[in-house]
């Protein structure tokens, strides 16, 4: 898969106002900039996600300042709650100017 693609997992049945777990994985190398190339001995330049925002129907849910010490192809999980059906959108950017977003619709009963 290409850099920046994400997979989001939400529960199928979400109860109104009850916190549920939002999990997602992003495909990204997450180079911290402290590793050395074993053949050339040069530092591998940093290339990692720096900012990540989660919104629900346009309202801010969570903001993350991500460092290079998060594992490659990072996995994140947070709790969130919803009072109405809508769209969860995850937008993120890296230190080389890459910007991506991914959204998922949720049904709330």
């Amino acid at each position: 898969m290409a850099i920046g693609t994400a997979k989001i997992r939400v529960p199928r049945n979400i109860k109104k106002g009850k916190p549920f777990k939002l999990q997602f994985i992003i495909i990204h190398p997450m180079e911290p900039g402290t590793r050395k190339d074993k053949k050339t001995g040069k530092l591998i330049p940093a290339h990692h996600i720096t900012k990540l925002d989660i919104t629900f129907n346009g309202k801010k849910v969570t903001h993350m300042d991500v460092g290079g010490a998060v594992s490659a192809n990072p996995y994140f999980a947070v709790m969130m709650k919803a009072d109405e059906p809508g769209t969860i959108e995850i937008s993120y950017e890296d230190n080389k100017g890459g910007k991506w977003k991914k959204s998922v619709k949720v049904n709330v009963s």
């Binding site: 916190p19 911290p32 290079g68 998060v70």
Partner: peptide, 26 residues
């Protein structure tokens, strides 16, 4: 770690609960 601050997560009441999980490098 060379950069000890791994991640900072700003939560809002929309989260409903203080919970966070990830995988990190050490």
């Amino acid at each position: 770690n060379p950069v000890p601050r791994v991640i900072k997560v700003h939560l809002t009441p929309m989260n409903g609960k203080v919970y966070f999980a990830t995988r990190i490098k050490m």
